[in-house]
């Protein structure tokens, strides 16, 4: 039943990888599952929602850019704690983070999504899609909510999410990487660890297929975000210049 072990990889090593990745995920999650559960029914009032909707696009973009930047810092910490990541050359580390951090954020995001009332955690409370109207990107917001809905249907455990986000981050097909083979080996080990974790949890074979099948949607959301940012930059260059430097670094051309 078990998948063959990657060449030169022992069961002990897989166990070590799993423990390391899961620990890193838990240590670098902005909110614990208990905190999220506690907040799940704390929503915005109609007046507060209207107030957010009537903000200018510049103010709302700035606010969201700050939230995304904070979340990226946690993803960088997550990456640093994955065994083998810091052994890669710094050029490759940066390429993997720039290309993969939004994917990781999109997967992690479904922890902060309540599928029952279709709301997302934003600034300490849960907000529906129309809350983000001021951004002027209804299609991007709708795509993010749709993804969260479909990801939450998969019902990933924290262990599965930890390993899946690590595997996505270690994608060897990102352009300009120097040590593709090394990254490929690392990713293969993480995927086998994930398969074993799924089998242990009694999950069906389909669960991994379902998780992986969301990757193209994530990629299109990442591209849509970049498109929207580029348009915003054209219309409001001064505001875009005041976005957090890390946000500009990661999403700049």
């Amino acid at each position: 039943i078990h998948n063959p072990l990657p060449e030169g990889c022992s069961l002990l090593e897989l166990e070590h990888i799993t423990q390391c990745v899961v620990k890193s995920h838990i240590e670098t999650s902005q909110y614990s599952t208990e905190e999220l559960k506690r907040m799940a029914w704390s929503t915005y009032s109609v007046e507060e929602t209207r107030m957010y909707q009537s903000k200018s696009a510049e103010v709302m973009w700035q606010e969201c850019a700050i939230h995304i930047t904070n979340a990226i810092q946690y993803v960088v910490e997550f990456a640093k704690r994955i065994s083998g990541f810091m052994d890669l050359c710094q050029n490759d580390q940066i390429i993997l983070l720039k290309a993969g951090c939004m994917d990781v954020l999109l997967i992690r995001m479904c922890r902060a999504y309540n599928p029952i009332n279709n709301t997302f955690l934003f600034n300490g409370r849960f907000a529906p899609a129309h809350f983000f109207k001021a951004l002027g990107c209804d299609d991007l917001v709708a795509a993010v909510f749709d993804l969260a809905k479909s990801l939450s249907r998969i019902q990933m455990s924290e262990e599965e999410m930890a390993l899946f986000t690590a595997a996505v981050l270690l994608s060897p097909d990102r352009p300009w990487l120097t040590d593709v083979q090394q990254i490929q080996k690392l990713q293969e080990k993480v995927y086998v660890a994930l398969q074993r974790c799924l089998q242990k949890g009694g999950a069906s074979e389909e669960k991994l297929t379902k998780m992986v099948s969301k990757l193209p949607v994530m990629r299109s959301i990442c591209m849509l975000h970049i498109d929207k940012l580029e348009f915003f930059r054209l219309v409001h260059p001064e505001t875009a210049y005041t976005f957090p430097p890390l946000y500009r670094e990661v999403f700049g051309s």
Partner: peptide, 20 residues
């Protein structure tokens, strides 16, 4: 290197800038 100054710094920092 200049282009990814902050990522470089974050990767080199042994302590996290985020209060984890």
């Amino acid at each position: 290197k200049e282009k990814h100054k902050i990522l470089h710094q974050l990767l080199q920092n042994s302590t996290s800038p985020v209060d984890l």
